[in-house]
Each structure stands twice: as C-alpha cells, then as structure tokens.
Design a protein around this nucleic acid. Structure first.
Lengths: 349, 349
DNA sequence: TCCAGGAACTAATGCGCTTCAGCGATCAAG
DNA sequence: CTTGATCGCTGAAGCGCATTAGTTCCTGGA
C-alpha cells in the first residue's frame, strides 16, 4: 500500500475509555443505553465519544452478535432493460429514506438472472453481509422466498400479491387487480369494447395478476368484450412491435394499456405512425406515471402510484421484521388513473 | 427475536478445521494460498470448505486488518431529478460488472446535498464500511476530494476533468471540450450560426467545461457566431421553460444542444408547440443517447457514449487504487455524434 | 552420527466490540 | 446490626479470521 497522507486512525472504545477514565465495558454500556452506569458517567462518556468523533465499527459489532447494519437489494434485469425505467431509482429513494434514519446501509447489486440473484443471497448470507433483503419482481414459482426462508434471512417481497404468503417474509403489494378493474370500467364507460393490454415480462407475478384481472373483467362485462393481453420484455422495441401487430389486425382495439411508461410512449409513437389519431381513434394508458408521460404529445393518461412511498413502506416492513415483528402482508394504495389527453370516448363503430 | 425456521448456522473455519483434522491456522493458510501447508492438505481443506459452503465472514476478515470488501457510491440529487435519467443505472451496471468479479459489494446511498454526501463518507470511514468510493457529479470547489484525501479513503472521481488532479484520488473523464468542439464544427458545417446550449446544473464541473468549451469554439469561429449557454436543473420543466424563452427572443437560435436526453425531449416538445419544425427550422441535439431519443418524432440526434463502459473503467481504476497502484487520470472515448432526424442544414436567412 | 535447516503444522495473540460473571460499596428490610 | 439486594463498575471471554511465533519431524550434508 502506498503511503497515504495522514493515516488518521479511527478512535476506538479503548480510546474513549482511557479519556473518560472508565473501563471499556462501561463505555459500551454507556453508549448503548444499557444499565450498568450512572447517568453522569454515561453523559461524560457520550461527550468524549462525540468529541473524538467515534463511530462503532460495524465489523466488530457484527462479530459480536449484532447484525450487519445493512440490507440487500438485488435487481435481476439486463442492464439495458434497466436503463430507462424510472421505477427502480424512485423505489430506492424511498427505501433510503427509511434506512438513513437508522443508519443502515443498502448493499445493491445488479445481476442477469434469478439464479444469479439466489447465488448473491447465498453469498451475502454466508459472508454475514446483510441483515435482510428486499426482493423485487416476484414471479410464479419463485425460488427466492423459499431460499431466504431456509437461510433465515428476513425479507420483504415487493409487489408480491396476497397469495405469496411465505413464513418469515413479508409482502408489500399494490392491488393490481383492483386497479385493472377500475381502469376497464372507465374505458367501458368511454365506450371501449376492444382493449389490448401490452404487458411486461410474462412470468412476473404482477404481470400475471394484471392479465388475470383483465380476463376476469372481460367476463364480467359480458360477451361483447374483446380484450386480451400480450406480453413483452418491457422494452420500447417489443412494445412498438406488439402495437403494430395488434393495430394491424382485422378489428383493431380502440384502447391500449401499457405496463410501463416507456412502452406506452413507444406504443404511442408506433400507433401515430400507422395513422391512428390519439385519442380520437385510439386511447392509450400507461401503467406507470412519470415525467415521460408529459414529454410526448398528447400527454399520456396514466395509472399513478407513489413509488417513493412504496419503497418507504417496503423498507418499513423490513425494519419491523428486523425488530422481531411478525411477517405481514401490507397493501399500498391502489394506483389512480390520471386522465390526460391520450384517452377519450371510443369512436362509434 | 421470533423463532425462525432452521437457524442454519454458517460454517466457520473452526468447522472446516475439525472436519479436515487440522488446526484453524492450517485452514487459513490453505484457503488463502499462503505457504505453510502441503498441497494435499490444501486440497483437502479446500474440498471440505466447498462442501460446507464456507465463505469468509467479511466482518471477521475486516477486523483482522483486511478491507471491508465493499466500495461506496453516493449520489446527491433530489429523488425526482434522479428518476428519469438513464445515466446512473447504466453507470452502476458497468461498475457492478467489475466489482462482481472480485466479490466486492456496492454500498449505495442517495442523499440531498453534497454536505450530506460528505457526512456519509465520514460515517462510512468511521464505521469501516468501505474500502473506497466512487464520486460522481464533481463540481467547482468541490469539498469531497479533499475530505476523502484527509480520511485516506481511495476514491475515483467520475467526470472530473483533467484539472481536478488530487493526490490519492484518480479521475475518469470524457473530453467534453473535444466533443463540444466537434459538435459545433458540425453544426457550423450545416450552416448554423446561432446556437444555444441548454446546460445542466450550473456548478457541476462538466457543465462548466461544456459552457467554457462552447465559448471557446465561438471565439474560434469568429464574430458572426451567436452562441451561448443557459443552465437548468436537468429537469424537463426547466428545459421547456428555457426553450420557450430562447425561441421567443428576437433572433431565435437555429440549433439547440441539450445536456441530457430528458431535456432534449422536453425541449423538442416545447419547440414543436411554438411552431418550430424540427429539423427544418431548428436542429436539436441531445448530449446523452438513450432509448428516449428514438421514442420521439423526429428521432433525436445525440452524442453517444458508452456509459456502461464508463462505469467499468471507473470501477477498474478504483480496483487499481485498492491494489496499491498510483492515482491516475484516465480519459474515456470522446462521445460520438449520432445524426438522426433532428439535425439538418440551417434554414437560409 | 549429528546437527542445521526447512517443511508442515499448531498455539497464541489481536482486531473492536458485546456480554456475562464477578466485586466492592451502598442501602433498605428484617 | 446483620443480611441480602441493588447499583456502578471492572475483568475476561468470545465472535471469525489473519498472523506471528513456536514446535515437531524429516531430510541432507559433513
């Protein structure tokens, strides 16, 4: 190692003990709010610690039984799919707000596949790196909750749905089915009978929930409904392709619902190119609100939810779990439809 | 703490020692490739370790002098400014690729201000949490390199520019000045003489470099050049406002250069709304290429750079620093102009 | 035949912290 | 006035690993 300026040794509890004229144990008791020292000593120790700029070494702390003061967050998506989506960074912002209060760190990792993600969990567990993890993009037959349960690693599944109850892991979810129901109701009210849902990755839990909900709604509304879903990889490319395909069909839909903002914008562009006027010929809805929705003309109507708050809630649940609370399933507010300029009455047949 | 299923104790070196019938020290030697054990013993120990799924506890390792096996990454921007920008997640992807090879963790934090960022560095340092950090968004009179030098925390400044040489911290940068020069040259070639640069946050180092470069270029091209920069907060809102302002002026520019993709798209929309045809009346260039640039009509010409590679390079430099190498200043390839449909010859006066 | 020297391994120590078992001193209860 | 309990504190052990200082055994050179 090359010589760095001012090695700047970190102060330890021993330094505090010496300066305060007490034993190390007393320092530990004082600083951790444990009984065993008088109030005056406690206060004196605190002052010395502060004056020295002392902070506990997480490593030492962890080695003597405490946690790692860190939670893990893995996202398994290819780098390019990750890029444009505003969802993750917003979610992380919310998570951070809660973690920062407790001085917990966030260990973040991007991987390619769920298998890699599981490997990361195993490594983190074996290396004692994290006290708990936040899991996103749950899917059908997901190996992750089982693995985390096996490892005894507290976890919160984000977007899991009410069915995904696993002992030891909490779930935070939005009622996609309810949102889909009210969205379809509204489109019906506007006269739309042929609706296509351009969904995201097929095996994700919330994708499947939305698809199922759409089907249920269609059945509820009777036989004249002509609705269906197509799945994509969330990319603008597949969205445009899917849009061209469905709009080129015999009886094109009069309303399109996209599972994220990027796809909605790409779809809008594709539709416009094909000569469809929005919203006169075609209504377009994005299932994710962001600045993007107001960057295109016409402004996109969107299902809006508080993503930052979503992250906050998830992190809060993890905190509760780390504090020894029971695993729970909590629901965040249902996304609300913001009607802008891309939706309107269906053109009469 | 509630009972969790299968506490699943992590195996330690002691377990390995017992199973392999040797002392703990022998295990340590064997597993760390140090001399002191025979090849056969080494191999046996390795097998036992693997079989037990052993991984070194980072905490213990760290406590006995090794590093934390973690690097830190702080971004100081308000949550909403963060959202749409594809830059950060791409950068992180690149960083991760390098870190993953070495099994290093990435500790990530979002804060509001540079002061908060400094506080985070201090805390990380005092808590022994990271071996080094990656610094983004360097600015004029930046307190961060000094602080990190003082703490002896190896750091790589991303986007620092050649001037920001600090002992102990490396710099990875793109030649914005060169890119600006070739961009202006090209616009001149197309006949543009009135150019406005809608820049990002005023105090950021690369913003200032670009503004300075633009001025230099203007002087080089002589007195008939009418170019200037306006600064914003990178948001679509400020971009649209700035665009309306400059286009409403007496002699509106014939070319607009935006410091990121979101602003370019917002500016394009604003210009279109004011009745400017792109590229007939007005050329538009984005200083950041992303899917967004091909989501709008016309497709945006953009300065494209390999952001993932940028992250890779930065992480690589940090690795070199951690290995005891000297601080360096390395330059990544100059962004290249991808001419799509938003740029064309200036309309003759 | 004896010893130097190296190879292969063990024992002991320390990193910074928490925690548990003491241990005087003080104090209320019997 | 004695007995136990309680308070305020100290000493020591231990967490999982790296490392240094032994220790034992073996080999080869004289």
């Amino acid at each position: 190692m090359p010589a760095r300026r001012s090695p700047a040794r970190r102060p330890t509890m021993k330094d505090i003990a010496r300066r305060a004229g007490v034993s190390e144990s007393a320092v530990s008791f004082a600083l951790n709010g444990r009984p065993g020292v008088s109030e005056v000593t406690r206060e004196r120790v605190r002052r010395v610690a502060e004056q020295l700029g002392w902070r506990p070494s997480t490593a030492a702390r962890q080695l003597s039984g405490e946690g790692a003061a860190t939670v893990g967050f893995v996202v398994a998506r290819p780098a390019d799919t990750l890029g444009v989506d505003s969802f993750f960074l917003q979610l992380i912002s919310g998570i951070q707000e809660v973690l920062a209060e407790r001085h917990l760190g966030l260990l973040f990792q991007v991987v390619e596949s769920v298998e890699d993600e599981c490997a990361v969990y195993r490594r983190w567990w074996a290396e004692h790196r994290v006290d708990g993890v936040l899991v996103v993009d749950p899917r059908a037959e997901d190996p992750r909750p089982d693995l985390l349960g096996e490892l005894g690693l507290p976890a919160v599944v984000i977007g899991g749905g009410p069915d995904s109850r696993q002992p030891g892991t909490s779930t935070v979810w939005a009622d996609d089915a309810g949102a889909m129901a009210s969205l379809v109701d509204r489109l019906y009210e506007l006269g739309h009978r042929r609706i296509v849902h351009v969904a995201g990755l097929p095996r994700l839990a919330h994708t499947e929930r939305r698809i199922r909900a759409l089907r249920t709604e269609a059945e509820r509304h009777g036989p004249q409904a002509r609705v269906h879903s197509v799945t994509t990889d969330y990319s603008d490319a597949e969205s445009a392709a899917a849009t061209r395909r469905v709009l080129g069909a015999g009886e094109p839909p009069t309303a399109l619902v996209y599972d994220n903002d990027v796809m909605a914008v790409a779809g809008l562009a594709a539709a416009t190119e094909l000569g469809f006027a929005v919203p006169a010929d075609l209504s377009v809805v994005s299932w994710e609100d962001s600045a993007l929705c107001r960057l295109v003309k016409p402004w996109l109507s969107a299902l809006s939810r508080d993503t930052v708050g979503f992250g906050r809630t998830a992190a809060g649940e993890l905190m509760a779990l780390l504090d020894g609370g029971p695993a729970r399933t909590v629901q965040v507010p249902v996304p609300r439809l913001i009607e802008r300029d891309s939706t309107g009455p269906a053109r009469p047949h």
